[in-house]
Write a protein that binds this DNA or RNA. Structure first.
Lengths: 145, 145
DNA sequence: CTTGAACCTCTAGGGACTGGAGGTCTTATG
DNA sequence: CATAAGACCTCCAGTCCCTAGAGGTTCAAG
């Protein structure tokens, strides 16, 4: 049994954030001690780690919740799980493509930035430049908050 | 001279977001027509594109502001912008690794999901795994009593 | 039994937008 | 030149995902 503080430390999550997740139903209502303090077990740690990693990958809590439904109920009819997985896969692939482009940009920025002045540093031009802009300025939705 | 709508379309930015940027000082106060509508020029477009690309890279507005300050005063050393980019690159690379693992798992689920139940859903294990978790929180700890 | 760290609830704030109400300007067309 | 659609304006409230603080309680080591 972990305290909320231990859970937070193990997952890099602020205590308030864990309580917030409980409040909005991302985390189950924790068991309590007689004095009212939350106590967690391994499965809660796993779930929180999943949520946190999902967030770090840029998924919204809604998308994470959907994935958790798959994990929570492995007897779900296949069609439901499949469509969720399909949709998430599209998202994931788009993100990978974008991140790879961004990685290339960043690497170039760093390589070409040899410690002189900004006047000779193309960091800013590269970031400003549209030529490598792979994002589709049109079929866009809310990705990160 | 562009209207705000044109500027938004060219950069994939919502109009409200542009006005918000002006409000918080990320964008300069735009010139206005006699009727009070904003008109922009090339330099504003460049600046907004810079901001948007920075956001897509995962920079906060604060970090972007820092870089814009460097751009406005090109006698500053490059190292500041470089270290910002370095930090971001690490983040991006971590995200790519995790997303690739998640992609593989989602693909596996879809392939194996041929009309039965979601017998074993390993999505959770994928994202739960701490092995590639390079962030400095308790990756190996037990820090508190 | 005492003490100090860690916990509790509640409320408010913050970053980065996003949407809507209600009204004004621009511009293409008749 | 008149009109009307559509793009613009301000103001403000709401969203998402946390984060901080006040003021009080519990836990566990000594």
């Amino acid at each position: 049994m972990f305290t909320i503080g231990t859970l937070g430390a193990k997952t890099g999550t602020k205590i308030q954030t864990i309580r917030y997740y409980e409040q909005i139903g991302m985390m189950p209502k924790a068991e309590r001690t007689s004095g009212g303090q939350r106590r967690y077990r391994q499965q809660d740690l796993d779930r929180l780690a999943f949520i946190r990693h999902g967030r770090q990958l840029g998924f919204g809590l809604g998308a994470i919740r959907e994935m958790l439904v798959l994990a929570d109920d492995p007897t779900q009819p296949c069609a439901d799980a499949d469509s969720i997985a399909q949709r998430q896969l599209v998202q994931v692939e788009q993100r990978i493509i974008r991140l790879e482009a961004l990685r290339a940009e960043l690497q170039r920025m760093i390589v070409e930035c040899t410690g002189d002045k900004v006047a000779q540093c193309r960091v800013l031009e590269i970031l400003r430049d549209h030529s490598e802009c792979l994002t589709d300025h049109g079929a866009n939705d809310g990705d990160m908050a």
